[in-house]
Amino acid sequence: KELVSALYDYQEKSPREVTMKKGDILTLLNSTNKDWWKVEVNGRQGFVPAAYVKKL
């Protein structure tokens, strides 16, 4: 599985998104959309802005 690192804090703005803190390591589930990537963090799945994470 592919991992990404959070470059910035992000506070979810809808139920489809997830909150992350800078430095968090997230499991990348889907990166086909260039703007929003689906990740899993702390057992929750949702979307984060692609520009806020980088692949490890």
Rank of each mutant, 00 (worst) to 15 (best):
Y8S: 09
L7F: 04
E40P: 00
Y52M: 13
V48H: 00
P15G: 10
M20E: 00
W37R: 01
G43F: 05
K22P: 03
K34E: 11
F47Y: 15
T19C: 06
F47P: 00
L3E: 08
R44F: 06
L3D: 04
V41L: 15
L26I: 08
V4E: 00
V18T: 06
Y52A: 12
S31V: 08
W37D: 00
Y52S: 12
W37H: 03
Y8G: 05
S5D: 04
Y8W: 12
V18S: 02
V41N: 11
P49N: 03
N33P: 05
V53N: 00
D35A: 11
D35C: 15
T19G: 09
S31Y: 08
K38H: 13
K55V: 13
V48D: 01
E2T: 14
K54M: 14
D9Q: 04
T32W: 10
K38G: 05
Y10V: 01
V41G: 08
V48P: 01
T27W: 14
V41H: 14
S5P: 02
L3G: 03
G23H: 06
R44K: 12
E40V: 07
A50Q: 05
K1H: 14
G43T: 05
K54D: 08
F47I: 07
V53D: 00
N33M: 09
V48R: 00
S14P: 05
T19D: 03
V4L: 12
E40N: 04
Q11A: 13
Y8C: 15
Q45A: 12
A6Q: 00
V4W: 14
M20V: 10
D9A: 07
V4Q: 02
V41R: 13
T27C: 12
L7A: 06
Q45S: 12
A51D: 10
K34T: 11
G23N: 07
A51V: 10
D9M: 04
L26W: 03
S14A: 08
E17C: 08
V53Q: 00
V41K: 13
K22L: 06
S14T: 12
G23A: 04
F47H: 05
I25V: 12
Q11V: 15
D24Q: 14
T27L: 14
P49G: 02
E40S: 09
V39Y: 01
A51T: 11
Q11L: 13
L7I: 12
E12G: 15
V53S: 00
L7S: 05
L7E: 06
L56H: 09
G23V: 00
S5Q: 15
L7N: 04
F47W: 15
G23I: 01
L28H: 00
G43R: 04
W36A: 02
Y8D: 07
K21L: 08
L3C: 13
E17W: 04
D24T: 07
K13Y: 05
L3R: 09
D9K: 03
Y8N: 08
K38N: 07
Y8I: 10
L26N: 00
E17A: 07
D24A: 08
Q11H: 14
A51C: 15
T32H: 11
W36F: 07
K22N: 04
N30R: 07
I25T: 08
K54H: 11
G23L: 03
V39P: 00
V53M: 06
P15W: 12
L29W: 06
K21A: 09
A51E: 11
I25F: 06
K22Y: 06
D9L: 03
T19V: 03
E17L: 06
G43C: 07
R44Y: 06
M20N: 01
M20H: 01
L28N: 00
D9I: 02
V18Q: 03
E2C: 15
K13Q: 14
N42T: 05
E12I: 06
Y52K: 07
P49E: 02
E40R: 07
P15A: 13
K13W: 05
T32F: 10
S31P: 06
R16P: 05
S5W: 15
Q11E: 14
L3I: 10
T32M: 11
P49Q: 02
T27Q: 11
N42K: 09
P15L: 10
L56F: 11
G43D: 06
K55Q: 10
T19H: 04
R44T: 07
W36S: 02
L56V: 12
N42S: 09
Y10A: 00
S5F: 15
R16K: 12
Y52L: 13
P49R: 04
A6N: 00
N33F: 08
S31T: 12
L28V: 08
E40T: 06
N42P: 05
N30V: 09
N30S: 13
Y52N: 05
K22R: 12
S5I: 15
L3K: 11
G46T: 02
E40Y: 07
K13D: 06
N30H: 08
V41W: 07
Y8K: 12
E40I: 07
K22A: 13
K21H: 10
